[in-house]
Design a binder for these strands. Structure first.
Lengths: 181, 181
DNA sequence: GTCTATAATTCGATAGAC
DNA sequence: GTCTATCGAATTATAGAC
């Protein structure tokens, strides 16, 4: 079959995200990605140069955080956790970052970049003091729950409904974002 | 050099824990472990059969949770976070579990086992309702902070002192353990 | 744009000498 | 108890034909 370059690239990227999300960086092979995309492994090299280049493209990521300055202050925690639950299930790029970031330095650097350029500034506009620490606390609880639910699959975390997660985590995030010292 | 079997096994295990903790399951090679231990790769096979066997031995783990029934109820959160901060820095088995559990199914199963047999029962004796969910919430916050601090190395999390971590996380864990609904 | 062939490594694992 | 030699499989990556 003969396709356009953009079609092929898109097919490869979709397959790569699935593989990276499911297997992590080292276990996700170019051959497997190519097989999933229904093309030859050589095409992956042609379009992305090498495995690092493929990963860099597959890990492009926008948190798409809402404008938190328009949210009532007492509902910040709930808004943030709702956003991330939905963001987590929309596609698997967040899962790519988490799965690969734990064993691959380049991927960890990518997560830090997302944190530094997207999450921290947004939080910084909300709290006057300790913004960086607050952003980290928020990230730790969100990533920790994602880890237990989607990666490690702790039975109680998997069984919990989205609303239950929100009920428990919203007050935690609210405190991290708005409490003094 | 000629050593006793126990000496050699101990040297291999120590090296294996370091490698698994730093690289995860697939990137930690038997050859690298053997080089670190200053012995031949064949010795690893001799004593542990295969890579899975080596991992199983390296991932033997006891949370060593204190008897929480003897702790004043209002200090439960602080006690738990203090224990885990110390446990995390005592050796690197917890880091082994986290690094490997994200990409290796056997390792993930091992973490779930530690959770189910060691953490959940202890929490279960404290709260009458929703014990499993409470244990998961505690695990999510503790693992999430460990992830940001020791694995992903978010600068604000790395710079935070132990006491700051305790001040922020203790109230969170306290609420997860003792709050109603 | 697609694929074949293959080079160059690397890894887990085995057999066997000393 | 320790090591050499090596097999067989898998991987990234390259060169080049069609």
């Amino acid at each position: 079959m003969r396709r356009s370059a953009t079609e092929t690239k898109a097919a490869i990227l979709a397959a790569a995200r699935q593989r990276f999300a499911a297997d992590g960086y080292e276990k996700a092979t170019i051959r497997a990605v190519a097989a999933d995309a229904g093309i030859d492994p050589a095409m992956v090299m042609r379009y992305f140069g090498n495995k690092e280049g493929l990963f860099a493209s597959a890990a492009e990521f926008d948190l798409r955080l809402p404008d938190l300055s328009r949210v009532p202050r007492e509902r910040l925690g709930e808004t943030v956790i709702r956003h991330f639950l939905q963001r987590w299930q929309a596609d698997d790029v967040l899962q790519v970052l988490l799965r690969t970031g734990v064993t691959n330095d380049a991927a960890a650097a990518r997560i830090r970049e997302v944190f530094t350029t997207q999450l921290a500034p947004t939080m910084g506009r909300l709290a006057k003091d300790g913004a960086a620490a607050r952003a980290t606390l928020v990230a730790s609880q969100i990533l920790g729950m994602a880890l237990c639910r989607y990666i490690l699959k702790f039975p109680p975390a998997v069984d919990m409904s989205d609303e239950e997660v929100i009920e428990w985590l919203a007050p935690t995030l609210q405190r991290y974002l708005t409490d003094s010292g």
